[in-house]
Design a protein around this nucleic acid. Structure first.
Lengths: 197, 197
DNA sequence: GTCTATATGCTGATAGAC
DNA sequence: GTCTATCAGCATATAGAC
């Protein structure tokens, strides 16, 4: 499954990922990318057929890195509550440590290309989401597993998505960015709701 | 507070909103916008100084429309539980009925311009978020109100944000898009967590 | 207030030398 | 595999007629 990528090609992709995450497909020119890598713009066309091909290669590159990480935390043998806790911690850490991953997914969803979303769903999220669905089924048989799974992911992802805006909202503290803090909050809310006790 | 906008100017802004929501600032050219409105590109520059000014005017236009709606559902006199329910329903309906609003906020967050996010926070979300914080304080004194408020918003918003991707994930049903369904799910999860009963 | 015509620069992409 | 040189097209924006 793991394809071998030549060094220079990988160097271009590594540079492309943060640029595309920050500015989107239209916001990154082949010139600016070439400058970033320290190459001539024409050289990029030796490694990739065109800009779109390069973009897709960069997406595959970053997504392949993370698809594995996502499933691991869910597959451990433990009680549903324990697995939820482990998953929340691993997921918060992942999203916190690799902001590009989150941004690129957001941009893909916004772009709304159905073929690409299909690819994303099947190649990156299928195994992860299947495991999460089964966890949801064990954890809360009375809930719609699909909605619950989306809610769990949303609770984590949204916290980090909205971070740049949160800086300007009331009650904000730097501690709110710590993965452990977010994980604890999310798990507590999921298990018992707002009922204190 | 409500500024008077000439008809032709308003017509341009109304056309610009869905275009910017769909393709982002870089993805919309003055040419394509002009074509959409049925005007010559040069005419746009009679109404707006430049593209950035036009974009900001479009943002103010769509946000001013919604800032009011957001606060209303929270200000009613009722028990915290009842207010949460009312808010969830109104919020789900708003996000469902006006996808552009959600997309434009997402794009603003991704763009990450701190000045513009500050403006968004103070002019659009301040009153709304303050009310939501106070509801959170009444509802769950044991929780960090800031985190809880973000979680409530995230549960709703993320559900609709991820809709294009959800189409390709397991367990999906068209009913998952209905605002009432999402609101019921979110409120149930918030009040009692996954504990069935 | 809307148009025609146009300036200027940046874009993705190619041909061909080394 | 990397470069120089260059193309055609589209971008934002302006000047000025009607």
């Amino acid at each position: 499954m793991q394809s071998i990528i030549p060094e220079s090609k990988a160097k271009i992709l590594e540079a492309a990922i943060p640029l595309f995450a920050e500015a989107g497909f239209n916001g990154v020119s082949m010139r600016s990318l070439a400058t970033e890598v320290g190459l001539n713009p024409a050289t990029l066309y030796h490694h990739f057929q065109d800009k779109h091909t390069l973009y897709m290669a960069a997406m595959s590159f970053v997504f392949a890195r993370r698809a594995e990480t996502l499933s691991v935390a869910l597959s451990a043998e433990a009680t549903p509550e324990e697995r939820l806790k482990k998953f929340a911690e691993a997921f918060c850490r992942l999203i916190h440590d690799d902001p590009d991953f989150n941004k690129l997914i957001q941009r893909e969803i916004l772009a709304g290309d159905n073929g690409r979303l299909q690819l994303l769903a099947s190649q990156v999220f299928h195994e992860f989401f299947t495991s999460l669905l089964s966890l949801c089924g064990e954890l809360a048989p009375g809930f719609d597993s699909h909605m619950l799974a989306i809610s769990i992911v949303g609770l984590v992802v949204y916290h980090y998505q909205i971070t740049p805006l949160r800086q300007h909202l009331l009650g904000r503290s730097p501690a709110h960015d710590f993965p452990e803090k977010v994980a604890t909050h999310v798990v507590r809310l999921l298990l018992r709701g707002v009922n204190t006790g």
